[in-house]
Amino acid sequence: MTAARWVRLLVLALALGAVGVGAQAEQAQTSAPAYEPAVGQEGKDVVWVPTPQPLVDKMLDMAEVTPNDYVIDLGSGDGRTVITAAKRGARALGIEYNPDMVALARKNAEREGVAGEAEFVKADLFESDFSRATVITMFLLPDINARLMDKILSLKPGTRIVSNTFPMGDWEPDATARLDSSDGCTGTYCTALLWIVPARVAGTHRVPQGELSLRQPYQKLSGTLRSEGQIVPVEGKVLGERIFLTASGRELHGKMNGKALELN
């Protein structure tokens, strides 16, 4: 055998071997099983347990999600909450640390026909920007909710926050709904909690009724109204920018307009 022929045979053998390796790799990739998350699997901060679909629907109902909203789901998992919000016409973003979950959620959104409205990113909740949200949904543990609370309270007044089952520190919810098997929700996690980010109204305000001094732990208000030489106790609440007060049996309603309190 000549040297030239030997070289040609070697090159041919290497080429055939490369084709075989490529085919094997392609076959392995094609036959690789699709990613399927397991209930209870470990995550960065929590284990994954999906929110039952009836509760997803209830959470979005309580937040009164419309096509005008921008929904951000914290720890979006398989994407069901984001996808449901997108089906209601809202723009929606899921923040998830597990890249396999992010890829799965994107596939689910594409299958459901809302890939253009449902976005998913791989990110850390504590390093993410929520400021565009009008609605935030979550299914996180109480200590995670508590760590996020200051960030959430700094959002625009009126932003709606909905949690599956778990509270947010000592910030009492504005509404609670519990589902059961008659609603199609079974198991432990069938409670929805709603908060509305309150405007900051603590302080002293000059209003048509007199001088109003308010204290404010979260959405609860208390204080005094000084009018015509009399001081009467005041109590009430703030929902977003809307204010509801009672002063000696008299109902007073108003809103925060920037830093000015308008009361009537």
Rank of each mutant, 00 (worst) to 15 (best):
K220Y: 14
F139K: 04
D78K: 04
K87R: 15
N98G: 04
M149W: 08
D69E: 08
T84S: 15
E42P: 00
N68K: 15
A18S: 13
R91W: 12
K58F: 00
G94R: 00
A109E: 02
F139P: 01
C185D: 03
T186P: 03
V19Q: 06
G94H: 01
Y218M: 11
D73W: 02
Y218F: 15
G75M: 00
R160A: 03
G169T: 12
A146F: 07
A118I: 05
N257I: 06
A25W: 14
G94C: 04
I83A: 11
S76E: 00
V82N: 08
V46S: 00
E112Q: 13
P233D: 14
H253A: 10
T30D: 07
G258L: 11
P67L: 04
N257A: 11
M138E: 01
Q53S: 10
L12Q: 09
L261W: 02
G113I: 08
G210P: 08
T186Q: 09
S222V: 03
G203L: 10
R215L: 12
Q29F: 04
F166G: 00
R80W: 07
T81R: 03
V46I: 03
L148H: 07
S131Q: 09
G116P: 04
G203H: 07
R215S: 14
S31H: 04
V49S: 11
E96P: 03
S128P: 14
E110P: 10
L140N: 02
R178N: 07
G210C: 10
P157Y: 01
R5P: 00
G113L: 09
P167M: 08
T30Y: 06
A199D: 06
D129W: 12
Q29T: 04
L212A: 13
E110A: 13
R178T: 15
D129E: 07
E235F: 15
G203T: 05
E119Y: 00
P54T: 13
G254I: 09
L60F: 01
A175I: 01
S227C: 05
D57P: 01
T134F: 11
V162R: 01
L214E: 00
Y189H: 12
Q219F: 13
P33G: 06
V121E: 13
V201M: 02
E127M: 04
S154H: 11
M168N: 06
L10F: 07
R178Y: 05
T188L: 14
L9F: 12
G223H: 06
D57N: 10
S182G: 10
V49W: 09
V7I: 15
A18F: 09
I196G: 00
E211C: 05
L153T: 10
G203A: 09
R111M: 08
F126Y: 04
A103M: 06
A3G: 13
I144H: 02
R91K: 15
V7M: 10
L252A: 02
M256C: 05
E42A: 11
T30A: 13
K220E: 14
S213H: 10
T176L: 12
K156G: 05
T30K: 13
G236I: 08
E117Q: 15
P198R: 00
G184D: 09
W195T: 01
M101G: 05
T81K: 03
V207M: 12
N68I: 01
T246S: 14
L179Y: 03
P67Q: 07
R132T: 14
A86G: 14
A23E: 14
I161P: 02
V47M: 10
V46D: 00
L193R: 06
V102N: 03
E235T: 14
G254K: 05
W171H: 11
D100A: 14
E26D: 08
Q230T: 12
V232T: 15
